[in-house]
Design a protein around this nucleic acid. Sequence first.
DNA 1: CCTCAGTATGGCACTCAGTGCCACTTCTGT
DNA 2: ACAGAAGTGGCACTGAGTGCCATACTGAGG
Lengths: 191, 191
Amino acid sequence: MTEGLRARARLAMRTEIAETAFALFVERGFEQTTVDEIAEAAGLSRRSFFRYFPSKEDAVFGLLYDLGEELAAAVAARPAAEPPWDALRASCAVLIEPMLGRAEDAMALLRLIHETPSLRARHQDKQDRWRKLLTDALQARSVPRLDADVLASAALAVFDVVCREWLFAGAPGDIATLMDEAFAVLAPTRG
Amino acid sequence: MTEGLRARARLAMRTEIAETAFALFVERGFEQTTVDEIAEAAGLSRRSFFRYFPSKEDAVFGLLYDLGEELAAAVAARPAAEPPWDALRASCAVLIEPMLGRAEDAMALLRLIHETPSLRARHQDKQDRWRKLLTDALQARSVPRLDADVLASAALAVFDVVCREWLFAGAPGDIATLMDEAFAVLAPTRG
DNA sequence: CCTCAGTATGGCACTCAGTGCCACTTCTGT
DNA sequence: ACAGAAGTGGCACTGAGTGCCATACTGAGG
């Protein structure tokens, strides 16, 4: 049973490569950094790099926790009587907390994603996964399918607005307040 | 002053190439079609293809009217007293009408975009442009900046939901009704 | 200790998108 | 008819990503 050991070694390697790559991306930009350069900086061959990450983009996203499941679980954990939109707003804390914990890195990452088309694309794909999970979570709260889809999509759109706002326009307050303001703009199913 | 002639010839060429390419994409899929194949089918060299379209993706989007400006103009044209959300909903007609006119092609295009990552990315980028234009149009109606951004983002998110719904789940009614239902889920700034 | 199998690694050659450069042809205006 | 602009094709190159193969490394069993 050395499989756990191998897996751990592999994960450590992945992490190290990703960190090396991220530093290069932040320094020179994503597109201006070639896989050969990453491989050399990380001390392995180009070919081996692609054994750890199926693509250059994955070196950015690959080691981030994908919070999709946690997000959906947070929605499921809200009181059943709570209106869906409020449940969504409250659940966004799950996304924001890790960002506040490492605000420096989070902003560098957001900036990188924002200014790199292929990373934006990946980010959107991830959010599309989140949307599906959120939609399911809302349907489990007996929200009709179309409503669930609209609410989930809108919540993620609001989250993106907040992230942009936070990234630029030097944070006019803390994110939680900003998030509340943004969610308050859309207040559906009011009596 | 034969420039108009050159420009017309060039546009005709662009259109023909794009149509040829689109047919191939629908038949074999976007990624399974190489630029060489498109070039051969359209009767020009690979090198010349890239003189008409900066990338393979542009052969799909390049000849579509970009309705961003029309959309923003539609918002600006709504009565000043109308609530922003209603103005957005009404303005979406600008996007839907051309889709209904060529429903067959529109669905093929939506399907192609939906199942091709790099086309999804382009589509998102276009919508991001729309978002900015819509935000400006709302601000011109004296909607505060953050509110305008949230409303514009949410409206586009709703539009996407409707497109998905229309594409799959064989249209449970006409799109206009669907759009009204979807917009009604989010009814902000109610007294 | 040796061997066998599974896994990681590196190198090579290939496809495909996209670009720069150059030579050649085809207008277009004078 | 001629000079110059514009369109075209070919060639070679970069850079991402993949398949294949030969070579290590490592852990388990004889």
